[in-house]
Amino acid sequence: MKIRLHVWRQESTDKKGKMESYDLDNVLPDMSFLEMMDVLNEKLTVEGKSPVAFDHDCREGVCGMCSMVINGQAHGPKATTTTCQLYMRHFKDGAEIYVEPFRSGAFPVLQDLMVDRSAFDRIIQAGGYISNHSGPKPDPNSIPIEPGVQETSLDAASCIGCGACVAACPNGSASLFTSAKISHLGMLPQGQPERYERVGAMVDQMEGEGFGSCRNYAECEAQCPKGISIAFIGRMNADYLKATLVEPVDGRGKMHAQ
């Protein structure tokens, strides 16, 4: 296969970037997209040019590290697929392929196709956990959980935190990511004590990071490599509204010293 790549090259966050084109004529259909990028990089290295920086790690679709927008779609044209699990057979011989980093003001480009997604970690820090110490805990079967609830919670927890939702959203919103974590914990009995505090804090953090607002395009759901449903955004909205308008506020987060 022959392909022509147009790749975003940017030296560092504060430098200006631009698209550059590369021709590859020894691409095989069974190569993964990242293996094709490896081939490009080896070629560039041997030619004494600087290889394209891109994030990747597990290469089996679960670590969430890979992060390219390929021909205008986060993780490329195939649904529920990460870039590392995308294969060159999904492209035509002679294809022109545009590769760009995830675009968001909250995800500054570090180099070429690598972006800084630490905003996601900070959203989790704001409340994406159930407070715990390590040590003896009650037996899990003492709190039965309906299998349906567990399943839906796991659907939400399947989020790999790659940021494709932000990259795909015409508004650059992180609602799908944030709502998935809020729903995962908010649906489980263990997550109830901090449920409303969590949703408030995480949404505040999400907004503080400068992500856009959700306008129900459902673009995130379509481009999410794990197919996380936007129903979780609805859930987050309901919980947020309840936390803001209904739930008592005074007690939350303000325990008295005893």
């Binding site: 147009h6 975003w8 698209m19 927008v69 021909n71 205008g72 779609q73 044209p77 649904a79 545009y98 760009e100 675009r103 968001s104 003001g105 909250a106 795909a168 015409p170 508004n171 650059g172 919103s173 400068g210 992500f211 856009g212 395009y217 459902a218 673009e219 759901e221 379509a222 481009q223």
Partner: peptide
């Protein structure tokens, strides 16, 4: 929220 846009953009949904 998106100061730099995409060169290519394709909507899925």
């Amino acid at each position: 929220a998106r100061p730099v846009g995409y060169v290519r953009s394709k909507k899925s949904a």
